[in-house]
C-alpha cells in the first residue's frame, strides 16, 4: 500500500478516534448515573450497537497508534528492505492486539 493511502487512513482514523474516544469518555466517565457498575457494563455489552462501537474504537485506535509508531521508527533511517520487515512486524502486532482485545467484548456479548 502506498504511503499516501496509509496517511489518509491515519487521518480518517484520527478523526474517527476524536468521536469514538469522546463518546467513550462521555459515557464511561462523564455521564450521570453509574456507568461502570456491573449492570451498566453488561447492559452495554449485550447490545450489538455497543459491540460494533467498541470494535471500531479498537480498530481505529490500533491502526492510528501503530501507524504513528511506524512513522517514529522510520525516522531512525530504516533502509527500505528493513521497512518491509517493519511493516509485517507491525501488522502481526496489530492483529495480535486486535485478536486479544476483541475477545473481551465479543465474549461479553455472547454471554
Amino acid at each position: 500500500m502506498k504511503e499516501t493511502h496509509l496517511k489518509i487512513l491515519q487521518y480518517i482514523t484520527g478523526i474517527g478516534l476524536f468521536f469514538f474516544v469522546g463518546a467513550h469518555l462521555l459515557i464511561s466517565h462523564l455521564s450521570s448515573g453509574e456507568p461502570t457498575t456491573w449492570a451498566s457494563v453488561s447492559g452495554r455489552a449485550a447490545s450489538s450497537g455497543w459491540l460494533a462501537f467498541y470494535i471500531f474504537l479498537l480498530i481505529f485506535g490500533i491502526y492510528h497508534g501503530l501507524q504513528g509508531l511506524r512513522t517514529i521508527i522510520l525516522e531512525f533511517s530504516i533502509p527500505n528492505p528493513a521497512v518491509k520487515v517493519l511493516n509485517w512486524v507491525l501488522v502481526a502486532l496489530g492483529l495480535a492486539v486486535f485478536g486479544y482485545a476483541v475477545y473481551i467484548p465479543i465474549n461479553a456479548f455472547i454471554i
Binding site: 502506498k2 504511503e3 525516522e75 527500505n80
Partner: peptide, 13 residues
Amino acid sequence: RFCEADSPHGVWL
C-alpha cells in the same frame, strides 16, 4: 515524481 515522494522516507515524514 509522486512515486518518488511517496516512499517511506518521502513527503509524509
